[in-house]
Design a binder for these strands. Structure first.
Lengths: 238, 238
DNA sequence: AGCACATAATCAAACGATTTATTAAGTCGA
DNA sequence: TCGACTTAATAAATCGTTTGATTATGTGCT
């Protein structure tokens, strides 16, 4: 029998009736995978939501895992460009870190697409807890370069030639604060609804994270000054 | 043939009263639920790991969800006491926030139990992405009081009578940094292994987070001063 | 002590339901 | 007619759950 994947890609022709079956499938699969996880998401459920039949998954992606890989690896191209030059050496720190945070918070585009980016972020957060083989590729191809660019930015503003472990740790703390707005969204709504519901909440949050980043960077720079009567232990052995 | 002394699994201590079947079940279920999620974890897999019969789940917990609830709600009693008085008004800020961070990082007890606490934390992180009914109880009974105590601590050190949304946001950022050491552990190992592997990594991380918290608190206090010669953008009103 | 009975715990086997993967035939527009 | 796509049905595996039997332990009665 002919293998289902070696057929020419059918997404070439734009149908007059909106997104193709394949596109709808990927779109709804992203939302359902993000909401319920890979195992709990059923192929019937996905196909029904997308308005396609069950056999379409095999037809377009071979199997369920192929569809999942597509939802995971598909948006990385957009993600790469979304960060667009945040580590430009000519940029002030606040502007650079703002460009870095904005896509993570889903602020590159407005309204509808923001929900889509939130779903992709949830997928990534799930994969952080339980990495799959496909995600390792994403890390190496996308996240690792972004992380290197971020630590480079931080090291530069700390007047360091090379980033060390403390810079890495600072970088993790910064992205953690941004991740949290996807991770604990439901809990925020229970504990402090105003943070999410007040007017211009996203803009405020972005401003806030930029301020936090500035404060942590200043803290890091002060920590590295030669005179250091700080509460941090001075025995930096190894 | 099989006497009750020679248990079928190596994890059971020799002697008449090792961990009971119920305890082993909960213990291994916690690890598997944390690693794979509720839906992907199979009852057969759990029982095989615990060295008990499949029917034990029904016998002890009714069904799979009852076992899951036990793994989720069981450790909350310990968690409540683990934070033990971190918001004592007589405590300096650094000491209070240190007592708050330590249990999250799994530093209340050493070695073996730390892995157990990490698993419980992973379960909670999964529930943050995809809250179940059982988790809502945990939030209301455990997390909400802890969050209120944290915002109270922060508001006090900001000389505020009542916490506002900005204080809540600061609190979320602080716990996010701590959560991240459970969430993106695998990714840290790929991107910057030294952060996790260097000697006394956990102690250093705790010190680091305390320093970050101090820096962010100072930033927040400075932001609230009427005169504001800070590097934070001048349009910080709103 | 000896016997009968009750309870708790565990076991192997199987049940019914649901899942994904797969196939064959059909529809419809260009 | 050809290719894109749908429909319906089946196969095969796996899932959570349930059952009935079995062992170990305890308990009360004579």
């Amino acid at each position: 029998m002919s293998t289902p994947t070696d057929s020419p890609v059918p997404c070439a022709l734009p149908g007059p009736s909106g997104p193709t079956a394949r596109e709808r499938l990927v779109r709804h699969a992203t939302g359902i995978f993000a909401a319920k996880g890979f195992a709990a998401a059923g192929t019937r459920e996905i196909c029904e939501a997308a308005g396609v039949n069950i056999a379409s998954i095999r037809y377009y992606f071979g199997d369920k895992e192929g569809l999942y890989r597509e939802t995971l690896l598909g948006p990385i191209a957009e993600a790469i460009t979304a960060f667009g030059g945040f580590d430009d050496p000519g940029l002030p720190f606040e502007d650079g870190i703002r460009r870095f945070f904005a896509p993570i918070l889903g602020m590159t585009s407005d309204g509808e697409d923001a929900a889509s980016e939130t779903q992709v972020m949830k997928l990534h957060l799930r994969e952080m807890l339980e990495p799959s083989g496909a995600f390792r590729e994403v890390v190496e191809q996308t996240i690792a370069p972004a992380h290197r660019a971020l630590v480079g930015l931080l090291a530069r503003h700390c007047a360091l030639a090379e980033p060390d472990d403390d810079i890495h740790q600072l970088a993790f703390a910064l992205v953690a604060m941004a991740h949290d707005y996807c991770l604990s969204r439901e809990m925020m709504r229970l504990l402090a609804p105003g943070v999410l519901d007040r007017p211009r909440a996203r803009e405020r949050t972005l401003d806030r994270l930029v301020g936090f980043a500035r404060a942590l960077l200043d803290h890091e720079r002060a920590r590295r000054l030669p005179h250091d009567p700080e509460p941090t232990p001075a025995n930096a052995d190894r």
